[in-house]
């Protein structure tokens, strides 16, 4: 990997962080709830008589369990991704010997 590619990747990741943090600094009076919650409210306004006709089979009991499952999802995903990159980087490094 050339130096310019490395720098580009770092710059791209930094740009992502800036885009994600910007709203947090700019908008003070929001809890940043999910957009699907906002959609539920919109449906309640448009179609006040609509009753959801099914419910989720399993619902995490609370915020803590839910964040556990989210962490697990992200951790397993990045685990597989990083294993792949580790394998590929080492393969390239030791190829010539």
């Amino acid at each position: 990997m050339t130096k310019s590619v490395k720098l580009t990747i770092v710059a791209l990741l930094l740009a992502c962080v800036v885009i994600a943090v910007f709203p947090l600094l700019k908008i003070k009076d929001s809890e940043f709830g999910g957009a699907d919650g906002a959609a539920e409210e919109a449906i309640a306004q448009i179609d006040p008589d609509y009753q959801p006709w099914a419910e989720s089979i399993l619902e995490p009991p609370g915020g803590e369990t839910e964040s556990l499952l989210f962490c697990l999802q992200a951790a397993l995903g990045s685990g597989v991704l990083c294993f792949g990159f580790g394998y590929l980087v080492a393969r390239k490094k030791y190829k010539k010997d």
Partner: peptide, 15 residues
């Protein structure tokens, strides 16, 4: 890996 993403997009169950 993919379990979650609670409050985001996706059309809600029953909607």
């Amino acid at each position: 890996v993919m379990p979650s993403s609670a409050s985001a997009m996706h059309i809600m169950e029953g909607y």
